[in-house]
Amino acid sequence: MLLALALAQPSPNTPPPDFSPEVFKIAGQLRCPVCQGESAAESNAGIAVEMRRIIAEQLAQGRSEAEIRAFFVERYGDWILYEPPARGLTLWVWLSPLLGLGLLGFGLWRYLARVRARALTTASDVSEEEIARLEAELQSPERQP
């Protein structure tokens, strides 16, 4: 199928309609279905041009942005939206900033607590050899053998 898409798609010799900024704004949130990861605003594939035309027509009919998006979701499913819906399995991506901050913050907190506890107790359980190695370590690199 990809091979087929690489072939010439004859473009009809009629001018496309004029598109307002609003059209490109909405198209930018929709996936161009035949492309490898381009939005309907970026792609010049015939289907993307037609999608922009549909958006322009629906805007002219007074439909809202949400209604236009729903129109495409009805035909393609949520896949067509570059902004995943905040429900079900894709709710997790929306939570990912909090999740990441929470996980990393928790790790950092536990680490700092441990490090602090260790600073309070004296380092008595360190072997001679380990101390020697650590001391060598603490030299700046230039002065090492």
């Binding site: 199928m1 087929a4 279905p33 035949v34 015939g46 289907i47 041009v49 037609e50 035309r53």
Partner: peptide, 15 residues
């Protein structure tokens, strides 16, 4: 369906 309008109605993503 030169511009593929019905194709979009059916949710096509390639031929």
């Amino acid at each position: 369906d030169g511009r593929g309008r019905i194709g979009i109605e059916y949710g096509y993503y390639g031929v």
